[in-house]
Design a protein around this nucleic acid. Structure first.
Length: 332
DNA sequence: GGTTCAAGCGCG
DNA sequence: AAAGCGCGCTTGAACC
């Protein structure tokens, strides 16, 4: 058996079935396909139409400001922060989200905001330079880790570097990276070693964050939001290591949450004072979704970009990607 | 009829 | 022995 659930039953988790499918078994792929469409149908296609408010003709979520440990919002009843986008079938669901007559949907996303915050918090010169120069950060990481010119980075190398970058934000181990990339643990370890050689400031930041958490029992965002990690000194390795990963992730995820909240306050004030035809309709962690009058799209985009970019002043620039369309999917 | 739990999976 | 952070929803089983 490849893997067990925490209670000891054989796991049928996606990653396990993917591995079995890769070994040439036919059934796991069928199960994965079935579960994929089943999830989309039960959670979205069948459910969302029943939740349309009869007075407004829209679905309305509830946002919660005091739920998450890191300072993010959460969304429920229905959750509009997990509308599908990664698969083609999922994107068809996203096309059902449309603006009012005479309006367009605008999606404004922070680009790599957590990695930029890592550059700021760590002060790592190489990472700061990459963002200052507007480089493709995953390609730049690949060039460093694999020792090749950026122009020679292969798609596989970039994918590996992207996994490393995300893994760092989450406190992932070489073992986890190996599993993610389907490579040997030793090879993954050599990637991590080379990453920390090339970005020593990031390595120091990770060590420093763990030490601060141990000493004071909490970590902070740039704005001083605290996340307490009482198990950071636990003698139970599993609990302590979980606390260490949380301590590393929280300053980045939490600072990103603080930044977009400030942007939302600025956007709201501007809409109220100067742009009554614009509506801020959703927030999805690093993205704001707005309804904008057709003829104001260009002007509004640049104002929104300004509020989001100016919502923090870090040691690296913030960048915002803005898309506009007839549906939420088209706005990406 | 309802609640709780585990497993699984949608998103950032 | 575990091994990647943060959420919410659906299903099915167990239970009251």
């Amino acid at each position: 058996m490849l893997s067990k659930t925490p209670k000891g039953a054989p796991s049928t988790a996606e990653s396990v079935l993917e591995e079995l499918a890769a070994q040439g078994h036919e059934l796991p792929r069928l199960i994965l396909d079935y579960r994929g469409v089943s999830k989309l149908r039960s959670t979205y296609t069948d459910k969302l139409p029943t939740l349309i408010n009869s007075s407004t003709g829209r679905v309305h979520t509830s946002y919660h400001q005091a739920v998450t440990a890191t300072g993010r919002l959460s969304s429920s009843d229905p959750n509009l922060q997990n509308i599908p986008i990664r698969s083609a079938a999922g994107r068809r669901i996203r096309r059902a989200f449309i603006p009012a007559e005479g309006h367009r949907l605008m999606a404004a996303d922070y680009s790599q905001v957590e990695l930029r915050i890592m550059a700021h918090l760590s002060g790592d010169e190489g990472l700061k330079r990459a963002f200052a120069e507007g480089q493709d950060i995953h390609a730049a990481t690949a060039a460093e880790v694999f020792g090749t010119p950026s122009d020679d980075v292969t798609a596989d190398q970039r994918r590996a570097a992207k996994a490393i970058n995300f893994g760092l934000i989450y406190g992932m181990s070489a073992w986890g990276l190996a599993r993610q990339l389907g490579i040997e643990r030793g090879e993954a370890q050599s990637y991590v070693d080379r990453y920390f050689e090339r970005y020593p400031g990031v390595h120091a930041f990770m060590d420093r964050t763990r030490e601060i958490a141990r000493q004071q029992g909490y970590v902070e965002t740039v704005d001083g939001r605290r996340l307490y990690v009482p198990e950071i000194n636990s003698r139970n390795n599993q609990r302590r290591q979980y606390a260490e990963r949380t301590a590393i992730n929280a300053p980045m995820q939490g600072t990103a949450a603080d930044i977009i909240k400030r942007a939302m306050i600025a956007v709201d004030a501007w809409i109220t004072a100067e742009s009554p035809g614009t509506a801020l309709v959703m927030q999805v962690h690093d993205e704001l979704v707005l309804e904008v009058l057709d003829r104001q799209v260009q002007d509004v985009a640049e104002r929104i970009r300004g509020f989001m970019v100016d919502a923090a002043s870090l040691e690296v620039p913030l960048e915002v990607e803005i898309g506009v369309g007839e549906t939420w999917d088209d706005a990406h």
